[in-house]
Every structure is written in structure tokens, then in C-alpha cells.
Nucleic acid binder design. Structure first.
Lengths: 200, 200
DNA sequence: CGACACATGTAACACGTTACATGATTTG
DNA sequence: CAAATCATGTAACGTGTTACATGTGTCG
């Protein structure tokens, strides 16, 4: 639902043709989200199917323009007016992976965490470098600001991911200690488990 | 690609049947990612099609078990061994939305930011409350740890989102000031733009 | 009995993504 | 001339998601 609305927003500035939309979209998301041209046309087709855009004639150079309809404008306003829903938040592959890693036996969880951490650190460096370039090239255009914000979101997200991974490690050693304690307790006086004194 | 591997990981612990997989998956992701049972069966079908799992007979009670194949185990090991790729990071709807909001005229960007911020704060509270419950109910099971980690990832992500939204606001006022400066400069001595003295 | 959890599945659809086909125009 | 860019499109596929059909067992 993101590209749909993205193109719709671009069309709200006035009629555009497919190739142009791709260019303008990428100007705002830079190298991080290259947009296959073909997808622009398929998405335009779906938008037209849903009555959000209509073909708007062609250029003297043969460019096929699309324009947003009244219904499209309403949909766009709805999009901007309501926050992106956090009901059923997107299933994050990393979270699922860690959840499975700590669950199934025989997985070297610390290795998984460290592997991901290194990868994220690398990504963070790349993003930071890109941000430097973006700041240097910034000429005050709105699209420059957009690109900068997108980059910074990636940076914030990646930082959070790294912090979370570190947190996972501490949780893991915490667990290992608890299990050691439990094992000793059992060794001393066999009894039904139950972490800490959560029961009795 | 996340649910596929998730189910594969569960099957790595031994043969399971569909309904059981759903239960075990949800035990690790809790209320945040309810998994439609139907999807388990469709995913199992696709896994079988790709040779990663095979039907493994049925129970005396009629449960249809699936088992992971050698190829499936290899795929699973690959999954755990390699970090989740950050090439072409997932297109984040919120980022696209903000990028478009600052770009197209006539959008009340601060309102969009604030609207989202409120929503995220609410979500953060929910997650925090859930975390309290998870901690209280924790009995040391691995699935409890998984559920806790998933929750904490959501918390970290949401916190990062809020921080980023706040950052966006400062960037916005920054821009408005710059534009004001530019406007005054033009008023005083009309000249080609170019932010700061980025050119000349 | 009626409601609900258990259990298996199918059909249809959404969006995103890639690969391919085709042609005009520009540029080294 | 050859390669690259501009420009429009189609076909096919992948996963995720929902809605529906169907049946068994259990419990109040």
C-alpha cells in the first residue's frame, strides 16, 4: 500500500507520465529504494482499475499522462490524515528469526546475534556516509529534505536494531544464569520448576 | 520469507501438524502476530512443493504430520547463518508518507507527524503493558523468552520511530527558517538561490 | 442442543518484484 | 555505428492474507 499512495501523492502535484513518476519517486528515496519502472505501470494500472487515477491524454512528445481523480484525492487525504496503522504490525523477519533461534535447540544464538549485529553496523556506516553526501548536496529542494528524512529513518531504525541485539545478548546470559541456578536447585533438592518463586 | 522459515524452524524440532504449528508459532509471537490457520496450510503446501518438507504419516487421532527434509534443514541452517539482508531494505510506509508529505504542497506536515506520534505513543504504552504481563507470566520456557524478545523489539522500534518523528519536526522548523532567510535575501538583493553558500 | 475449540483445507485476491519485449532518441 | 537513456508496457511469479467450506469432538 505504500507505492500506490506514493505515486498518488506525486500525481496530486499534477498529471505525470510513468517514467517521470519513477524518477520523482527515486529522487525522494535515493539509492535505498530503487523502483523498477515496470512496477510504476502495473501500479498505475491498479490505481486506474480502482478509480483513483485516469489517463489524461498525451504530450506532443507522446508521453502518456495520468491524473488523480476526486476519489483519488479523497483517498490521499485519508492517507495523510490517519496514522499508518500499528494493528498487526509488519512481521519482522529478524524478530521471527531470533524468536525461533532461542526456541529450537542446536542453534548458536550468540553467533546469530553477532552476525546480524556486524551486518547492521556495516549498514549503519553506509547510511551515515550517504547522509553526509546528502547534506553536502542539499540545495534546499523539498526532495532533498525528503531524501534526508528517509535516510535518517533508516539510521534511527538500524541503531534501534543494534541496541535491541545487544539487549538480546544480556537477556541470553540472564537466562543461562537462571538455568544454571535451577539446575543446581534440582541437584540439591529435586522439585517442580517455576522460575524465581513465581509459584508458591 | 519469514513465515516459511518460521514454520521450517518449528518443524526442525520434530514432525508437527498444521494446527499445532500455528499454536506454537503464536506462543512465540503472542497477540502481536496472530497467524491465520489457513496460511499455515498454504505455506506447508509451498514448502512441500519446494522439497523442504514432506508429509510424515498421520497420528492415531488423524493428525497429518509434516517433517523437514535434508534440503529443508540445509535451508534452515543457511537462514540462521546469514544475517537478514539489508540490500533493498523494506519500503517503510511511514517513511514514504513523510517523504511525500514534505514534497507535495498543501499537506499539513506537522499534523501528520503529530498524528503519527500520538499513535506510536499509544502503541508504545500497549507494548510496555504487554511486556509487564509477559514478565509476570514468565516461567522460564524458551517460548516465553522468545515472546519477550519479540515484544522488546517492537518497543525498541517504536521508540526509534518516535525519536525520528521528533527529529523530523526539528528538521522542519530548520527548513522553514532557511526558507525565510532565503526569502529575505531575495527581497534584499534578488539572486539565484543555492542554500547557505553551497555554491560560489 | 448449541457453542466453541480443534483440525484440514481451498479459492481468490492484494501487493511487490523481476524479467522480458519493443521502440525512439540521444550521445560518444 | 554502438551503447545508453528514455519510454511504455506485459507476463509470470512470490508471499501474505482473508474468507469460506467442512467436519469432529467437547463441554456447559
Amino acid at each position: 500500500m505504500s507505492i500506490r499512495h506514493g505515486l498518488l501523492a506525486l500525481l496530486d502535484q499534477g498529471p505525470r507520465y510513468g517514467y517521470q513518476l519513477r524518477t520523482e519517486f527515486e529522487a525522494r528515496t535515493g539509492a535505498t529504494w530503487p523502483l523498477n519502472v515496470g512496477q510504476v505501470y502495473t501500479t498505475l494500472g491498479r490505481l486506474e482499475r480502482d478509480g483513483l487515477v485516469v489517463p489524461a491524454g498525451e504530450d506532443e512528445e507522446g508521453h502518456l499522462f495520468y491524473a488523480v481523480t476526486e476519489e483519488g484525492r479523497a483517498e490521499l487525504r485519508r492517507w495523510f490524515d490517519s496514522p499508518v496503522p500499528r494493528t498487526n504490525p509488519p512481521r519482522d523477519e529478524l524478530a521471527i528469526k531470533l524468536a525461533m533461534a532461542v526456541t529450537v535447540p542446536g542453534v548458536d544464538v550468540p553467533a546469530v546475534v553477532q552476525g546480524q549485529r556486524g551486518h547492521s553496523m556495516k549498514a549503519l556506516q553506509d547510511y551515515t556516509r550517504l547522509k553526509g553526501q546528502a547534506l553536502a548536496a542539499d540545495t534546499g529542494r523539498h526532495s532533498d529534505l525528503a531524501w534526508l528524512l528517509v535516510l535518517e529513518q533508516l539510521i534511527f531504525q538500524t541503531e534501534a536494531e543494534i541496541r535491541w541485539l545487544d539487549h538480546c545478548e544480556t537477556r541470553l546470559v540472564q537466562r543461562m544464569e537462571e538455568e544454571r541456578e535451577r539446575a543446581q536447585a534440582v541437584e540439591a533438592a529435586p522439585a517442580p520448576t517455576g522460575r524465581r518463586r513465581s509459584r508458591i
